[in-house]
Write a protein that binds this DNA or RNA. Structure first.
Lengths: 248, 248
DNA sequence: CTGGCGCTTTGACGCAGATCAAACAGCTAC
DNA sequence: GTAGCTGTTTGATCTGCGTCAAAGCGCCAG
């Protein structure tokens, strides 16, 4: 447990109203597939917003679990720690994605969630969400899908870590980011990495030098253009070919 | 899609009755924490049992999703495949554990589930489970915990794959198996591996030879005794020390 | 009993990625 | 501006695990 590092925005009529029904992310986030009246109900469960500054924790391993969070804006990473200090980044979350589901199992968070840029989340108190999913069938089903999607995503990461080589991992990582930017209406081919080489390395089971070398190699091959955190994808099919040599 | 390889046991009064309320696994499985009347209701949702012979699939990637499964007896592995044939074992499941939650997200299974010995599962049609979890609050909450536990477990596997060395991975694997056998009333220190070195290797992101060498090394160190698939754990604290050198 | 097959063990060698090290780029504070 | 810090790049070298190969074990079929 620790004291929150950020203030909650007071629950006013306007902040409630500004929740799901007006949200540009509703096609990506929890309201997906709900009818207007159902979204209004969901709005009432979304208690408040919370701003998290770059570098601050949204929650830490060991914190009591009370709510899940929808990323409203910004960028997060989640990681787990070993006693000896080694850590493993388990994911990067962007707008519309849900954070905190690790906490449901033992009513305590088991990983850390850190903002990689100034961010804002919608706080969804879990007991209220459960109440609502008992009443709204489509919300229930969608929430189950969100949890299941997280499991499927984790399997993909296991595949990366267990069966792919360094450059394949980085190619898969870039293509995945690109896909997620497309879904949010951003450029698929040009973006700014919010995380360091070390964080990418931790996520991909590689050392930061290996990540850096792989970026440089992709640049030499003309697949991408790298300047520090600025990435331009020049040859999307080429990256896919790296991932799966026989097909394509 | 493929045609089922196993017959369902017909739904008779006795098979229904024999479901959750009489089941020796109810303290590990979905009925955990439910009252007797609630368990009776759950019984009615558990449609049937299904036997799966060693080597047969419970489901395959691409199969339509209709139900989740509780392992009644036996042992399973789940794996995901890459187009080029590489595969990644994502988990091993034993009695009382739930299989198939990967299928919820896109209504299609995304991994394969194969019996490693002659096994039996309880088939829990998912729409009926959702219906029931809308009615029974404690079942709803417990089901959410089961899904969340799977996410937490996956994070642990990422930690294994991304941040630990070969012998640490194998030590963690053995300790995890041992823990799960304890919970089922079996010996914690002596057991029979149901999976091959290759399957262990795939799960741990290692080649089968590396797994074999690590087993031999543990044997030499007096930590365990290995004879093919028969394992005796001689020095549990020693294995833990391998995992976390500074502590202990 | 015997042959064959799947799985495991062990050895010799090679390489992808880790480690160590140094220079460099970009940002913030003053 | 410039000092200092954090993060990145690149080179040289090392090593843990992979690869290749061969022998051994245990089980089943005939």
């Amino acid at each position: 447990m620790h004291k929150p590092e950020t203030r909650s925005i007071p629950l006013t009529l306007s902040t409630i109203k500004a929740a799901c029904s007006q949200c540009s992310l509703r096609e990506l986030c929890l309201p997906f597939g709900l009818s207007e009246p159902e979204i209004e109900q969901l709005d009432s469960a979304v208690g408040s917003r919370r701003r998290v500054k770059r570098g601050q924790h949204l929650y830490r391993a060991g914190d009591g679990f009370e709510a899940i969070y929808a990323v409203k804006s910004g960028f997060f990473k989640t990681d787990v720690l070993l006693e000896d200090g080694r850590n493993q980044v388990t994911g990067f979350q962007m707008a519309g994605e849900i954070l905190g589901m690790d906490g449901i199992s033992v009513e305590t968070h088991t990983c850390n969630s850190v903002a990689l840029e100034d961010s804002e989340v919608c706080v969804i108190p879990f007991s209220q969400l459960e109440q609502l999913t008992r009443e709204i069938k489509s919300l229930q089903h969608h929430f189950h899908k969100v949890m299941s999607r997280e499991i499927v995503r984790d399997h993909g990461v296991m595949m990366l870590l267990g069966a792919m080589r360094a450059e394949e991992r980085l190619a898969a990582f870039l293509l995945n980011l690109s896909q997620r930017f497309i879904a949010r209406g951003y450029s698929a081919s040009e973006f700014h990495l919010r995380m360091t080489r070390d964080e990418i390395g931790s996520y991909l089971g590689l050392k930061l030098e290996t990540v850096s070398r792989a970026f440089s190699r992709f640049d030499e091959l003309g697949l991408i253009r790298v300047q520090q955190k600025h990435i331009v994808i020049l040859d999307n099919p080429g990256l896919k070919k790296l991932l799966n040599p026989q097909a394509c």
